[in-house]
Amino acid sequence: MKLTYETISFNDIEILREPCNALMDFQKSKATITPERFDVMNFDTRLLPSIEKAVHNYIVVVKDEEKVVGYVYTNVSQKEVYVSDFATFFDLSSVKADLVGCLSQFYIDEGYRKYGIGSKLFRMSMEWLDQFKEVEDHFIFVSNGNDHALEFYQQKGFKVSHDILDGFITVLRK
Rank of each mutant, 00 (worst) to 15 (best):
L3E: 09
T4W: 04
T4C: 10
Y5G: 04
E6T: 15
T7P: 05
T7A: 12
I15F: 10
I15S: 12
R17L: 13
C20P: 00
N21I: 00
L23P: 09
D25C: 08
F26C: 02
F26Y: 15
Q27D: 06
S29K: 05
S29C: 06
K30H: 11
K30A: 13
A31F: 02
A31W: 10
T32N: 11
D39A: 08
R46S: 14
P49L: 09
S50T: 11
K53N: 10
A54K: 04
H56G: 09
I59Y: 11
V62M: 13
E66N: 15
V68N: 13
Y71H: 13
V72F: 01
Y73H: 14
Y73N: 07
Y73I: 13
Q78K: 15
K79A: 02
V81E: 11
V83L: 08
V83N: 08
D85R: 00
D85W: 00
F86K: 05
F86P: 00
F86E: 10
D91T: 06
S94M: 11
V95F: 08
A97I: 02
D98Q: 13
V100T: 12
C102E: 11
L103F: 04
S104I: 06
F106N: 00
I108N: 05
G111A: 13
Y112R: 03
K114E: 13
I117G: 06
G118T: 01
L121C: 05
F122V: 04
F122K: 05
S125W: 06
M126P: 04
